[in-house]
Amino acid sequence: MQLEEFLENLERAAGLEDIQSCIIGLRDHYQIDHIVYHWVSSDGEQYGCGTYPPAWVQHYVDHDYLRIDPVVIGCFQRFHPVDWKRLDWSSKAARAFQKDAIAHGVGNQGFSIPIRGPNGQFALFTASHNCDDAVWAAFTKTNQRDLILIAHYFNHKALEFEKKRTPEPAKSLSPREIDALTYLAMGYGRGQVADMLDISEHTLRAYIESARFKLGAMNTTHAVARALSEGLIVVGGAARAAAGDWPGRDQAQARIAV
């Protein structure tokens, strides 16, 4: 499964079972032991989905591990992703918790991405595995950027369910972002697009990055495809070298050429 395919499935997800199957697919894609999405509301309620054994999840809740878990404590109210090795496991309670987690098959390695949603909403997106430090460091280094994006797309979906609202028009792009994606869809290179918009390529990259996130896409090509499929941009006959003809076209082009 490609990540783009995963995101299309996530986009279509209509309920918790759907995102559960998305997260299983994602875990299989990365060939690691677990991926978990964990939402903690301000009043301590917990929601989530993921591949942890249900017995561990129940055990976690029964033991009120939320109050001990160094991952939750270390990530709460923060926004940088963290390797579990960088958290504080020094207390006796934390060490006992860790031993318990490993015994339940969570894995000895973990990587968590904190997410700050609207109105104090907080969630964690976690990948965990059983392997040595070098293997895990290589995995997180390679996949950190994608995992950060996926974590936020997951949270966006979860917010839709929570509030039982129709997706907000978060995909509203500014005219400049629409122009940039339109020109890219028409086949112009970044340098040409930057020239046409009269901005630097550097600025264009930031605009595309921003549009990519708003569109829930993994990369520029995917963002363009999404913008097209959602009707946010229209290319059609305006494309360079587009096929088609109409009365006076040759003369019009000749005039432009002059």
Binding site: R145, S174, R176, Y207, E209, S210, F213, K214
Partner: peptide, 11 residues
């Protein structure tokens, strides 16, 4: 910013 809301977890 030309009206562009700059929004990404990578920015």
């Amino acid at each position: 910013t030309d009206g562009v809301e700059i929004r990404s977890p990578l920015i």
